[in-house]
């Protein structure tokens, strides 16, 4: 049986195997770039107030929905494709930033000194609220995200890559670099890092902790909006439940890289994307199809668990002695 299979491969030429591998890498990196951008939001918020913002995925969804609506309004007015997407993205960022601020102000700030799990439950509540508000506004239907930028495929070492994939990777990298610059090179960044290390001490030194935390939420939310537009245009679909699954994966990515650590979120995202793509692509072949792509998520979680067992604070995380 096995010999027969190998024969079939040999007939299909060896380059194809390599082509397929490169294609899987391209798939994985694109997916990973999306995870990374969403993971940044989780990690920033966690880094500064040790809160898993379960509602972060919903911000991605709202971002996609707002952009969906605006593109739908602008395109019939004769606005060309690129400016329309740009305007829509900016508006989505603004809307999400406002929402992120409101979320922090109303749901999380009152809980700053509460036991650790209280804000977590609050976050779950916010996530339920946002999803159902979105249901009211944008209906229950999966919406076809307008494909106004025409998809074009390019050949890359035997694999195909579309202009949208290139766009996603470039924009993600740019946003990560921008964020890294902000956190490590600006006054705001210094204030953020100071607050995350010791909020009390930072306050004594004149840092307005509330303002810094609010800004963190706003930046994270704006990034989520961009991620929403990217996901919407890449897959061509927007739905009011789209945020939760993506949010969960991005959260895993953030933890994998070491939560609270910005380069960690990027590394975790790309790694998770690659693990998923290669897992779906090759587990079947390596296990003689006893396990197939149906175990893709098992594979991803196993990698996550193994990494954490050997490096309990994630790949780039620092050892922290916190309590649950």
């Amino acid at each position: 049986m096995l010999a027969c299979g190998q024969k079939a491969f040999a007939a299909g030429a060896i380059e194809t195997l390599m082509d397929i591998f490169i294609q899987q890498l391209v798939n994985g990196i694109t997916l990973g770039a999306v995870y990374a951008v969403v993971a940044l939001g989780y990690t920033m918020v966690y880094g500064i107030i040790q809160l898993i913002n379960f509602a972060h995925g919903e911000l991605v969804m709202i971002g996609a929905m707002v952009a969906f609506t605006l593109i739908g309004v602008l395109t019939p007015l004769g606005v060309p494709a690129l400016p329309a997407v740009l305007v829509a993205t900016l508006c989505a960022m603004t809307a999400c930033a406002l929402l992120g601020y409101a979320m922090e102000r109303l749901a999380y700030r009152p809980l700053r000194r509460a036991p650790r799990l209280a804000p977590l439950i609050s976050a779950i509540g916010v996530s339920i609220i946002l999803q159902h508000l979105a249901l009211l506004v944008w209906s229950r239907n999966p919406l076809a995200f307008p494909q106004i930028v025409k998809t074009e495929s390019f050949a890359l070492a035997g694999a195909t890559i579309t202009n949208i994939q290139i766009g996603i990777i470039v924009i993600s990298v740019a946003m990560m670099l921008g964020l890294a610059w902000l956190v490590y090179r600006t006054r705001l960044g210094i204030a953020m890092r100071a607050t995350s290390q010791n909020a009390q001490m930072a306050a004594l030194l004149g840092v307005d902790a509330n303002q810094v935390i609010a800004l963190t939420f706003i930046i994270g939310a704006a990034l989520a909006a961009v991620a929403g537009v990217m996901v919407g245009s890449y897959y061509g679909i927007a739905h009011y439940t789209m945020g939760s699954a993506l949010g969960l994966k991005a959260f895993c990515a953030a933890v994998l890289g070491g939560i609270g650590n910005i380069p960690g979120a990027m590394l975790g995202g790309v790694l998770l994307g690659l693990v998923e793509a290669l897992g779906a692509g090759y587990i079947g072949d390596f296990t003689d199809n006893v396990f197939g792509s149906n175990y893709q998520d098992v594979f991803a979680f196993m990698v996550l668990i193994l990494v954490l067992v050997f490096r309990p604070s994630g790949l780039l995380g620092e050892r922290v002695g916190d309590r649950a």
Binding site: Y46, Q50, I52, R116, L248, F251, C252, V255, I259, F301, M302, L304, I305, L308, V309, P312, S313, G314, V320, G321, D322, R323, A324
Partner: peptide, 14 residues
């Protein structure tokens, strides 16, 4: 060996 949120994510994965 895991603490807090790292434990949370592993249990979630499990």
């Amino acid at each position: 060996k895991l603490r807090g949120d790292y434990l949370a994510i592993v249990t979630l994965g499990f």
